[in-house]
Design a binder for these strands. Structure first.
Lengths: 199, 199
DNA sequence: GTCAATGTAGACAGATCGGTCTCCTTCGTT
DNA sequence: AACGAAGGAGACCGATCTGTCTACATTGAC
C-alpha cells in the first residue's frame, strides 16, 4: 500500500508539471525509486496510473477546498472563502496542494479530450462535485431553487475562468477579480429578494 | 508554401484532437501526405511546428470571433454576439473553426505549462488579444476606464469559464448561461451610470 | 526455518519517437 | 539542355516508449 501511494504521488507531480504524455513510466519509477515490476503489480497500465492520479488529486483538492470553506459562518462567507483559497493557490501561498500549474482536471481533459474516455469522465465528475459544493453554500443563502442553480453555475464559471487566466496568462490577481464579481452577483440577489419581501 | 500550410493544418487538427505529445510527427506526415524531409525543410523541429499550429489557430479563431462580433450595432450587442458565437462553437454548429475539443490555447498551455516557454507565451498572447477585443467593445459603452477594465476582465473570465465547462463537463449550455451573467453585469452598470447622471 | 507477500534491478521485446540523410523526381527559369 | 528549388520515399540513428519477465532479496507470520 505504501508503494502504491508513493507511485501515485510522484506520478501526479510529474504529470501535473509536464503533462501526462510527456512523461513516460520510466521517469516515474526513476523518481519514485519503485521497481517497474512493482508499478505493474499495482497498476495494469499507464492509463490506470493516470486514473489513480486523477482520483488522488480529486481527494486532495476537494478536501483542501472543503477545509478552507466549510468553517465559514454562512453561505456567502463560504463562497468568498472559496475565492480566497483560489488566490492562495494561484499565488503559491499554499503548500498543501502543490505548486500551481493550472487545474489538473482541465489539463488532463486536454490530453484525454474524448468526453467518453473514463479518465475524462473522472475529471468531469470532479467538476460536478465542485459545483455541488458551491451549490450547497448558495442554498444556505437562497431557498429559491432557480436562483441557487443559476448562481452556483455562475460562481463555478468564474472559478474555472479565473483558474485559466491565472495559468495561461499568469494573472496572479485572477481570483481576487473573480471574487469581486461573485460578490456583486450575490448582492444583486440580496436586493432582488429584499424587493420581493417588501412587495 | 502550399505544403507548409497543409502540414500546419493537419498537425493542428491532430494536436487539437489528441494532444501535442500524444501525436508524433510520423502521424502528421502520414495524414498530410507530405514527406518527412519536406516537413523538416519547413520547420526546424516539432516544437516549431507546434508553434506554427498555435499561430494558425490564433489567426483562425480571432478572425472568426471578429467576424461574429464586429458588425454588431453597439458594444453590448457585440459582447452578447461573442457568447452566441461561443454557443455555436460548443454545439458544433460552426464548421469554419473545427469540431469542439475545448480551447486549443488552454490545452496547449496544459502541455507547455512553464509560463516562460515560447509556446505558452503564444497562448498567453492570444488570450491578451481576446481581452483587448472585449475591452474595445466595452469601451464603446462606458467611458469610465475603471469600469472598462473591470467589466472586460469579467467577460473574459466568463468566456474562459464557459469554455472549460463545455469541454470538461460537456455542458452544451455553458455559453448561454455565461451570456446571461455577462448581460446582468452590463445592465447593473447601466443602472450605476444612470444614477450617477441623476445625482 | 519455511513460506508467501512484497519488492528490487534491469534485461528483453516490439514499437515509436524526433531528427538526419541518400537517392531520386518534377517543375520552372534561363 | 542545364540548373536550382521544392518535394518524394524511406532507410537509418540513438533514444525512449509500454509492457513482460528472470533472478534475486526482504519481511512478517507461523
Amino acid at each position: 500500500m505504501e508503494r502504491r501511494e508513493q507511485l501515485v504521488s510522484v506520478a501526479f507531480g510529474l504529470f501535473y508539471r509536464y503533462g501526462v504524455h510527456a512523461i513516460g513510466i520510466n521517469r516515474v519509477i526513476a523518481e519514485s525509486g519503485v521497481a517497474k515490476k512493482t508499478l505493474y503489480n499495482h497498476f495494469p497500465s499507464k492509463e490506470a496510473l493516470v486514473a489513480a492520479t486523477v482520483e488522488y488529486r480529486d481527494r486532495q483538492f476537494s478536501s483542501w477546498i472543503e477545509g478552507r470553506t466549510q468553517l465559514a459562518p454562512d453561505g456567502q462567507s463560504a463562497i468568498l472563502a472559496l475565492f480566497d483559497a483560489l488566490d492562495d493557490w494561484f499565488n503559491e501561498r499554499e503548500k498543501l496542494i502543490h505548486p500551481f500549474h493550472g487545474c489538473y482536471f482541465i489539463n488532463v481533459s486536454a490530453e484525454f479530450s474524448d468526453l467518453n474516455h473514463p479518465v475524462h469522465q473522472q475529471c468531469a465528475s470532479h467538476k460536478r462535485s465542485m459545483l455541488g459544493l458551491i451549490s450547497g453554500y448558495i442554498s444556505q443563502i437562497f431557498s429559491d431553487e432557480k436562483t441557487v442553480v443559476t448562481l452556483s453555475e455562475a460562481v463555478a464559471t468564474l472559478k474555472e475562468g479565473a483558474t485559466v487566466q491565472a495559468h495561461v496568462m499568469g494573472d496572479l490577481k485572477a481570483a481576487v477579480k473573480a471574487k469581486a464579481i461573485a460578490e456583486e452577483l450575490l448582492k444583486a440577489r440580496f436586493a432582488d429578494h429584499a424587493t420581493a419581501v417588501l412587495l
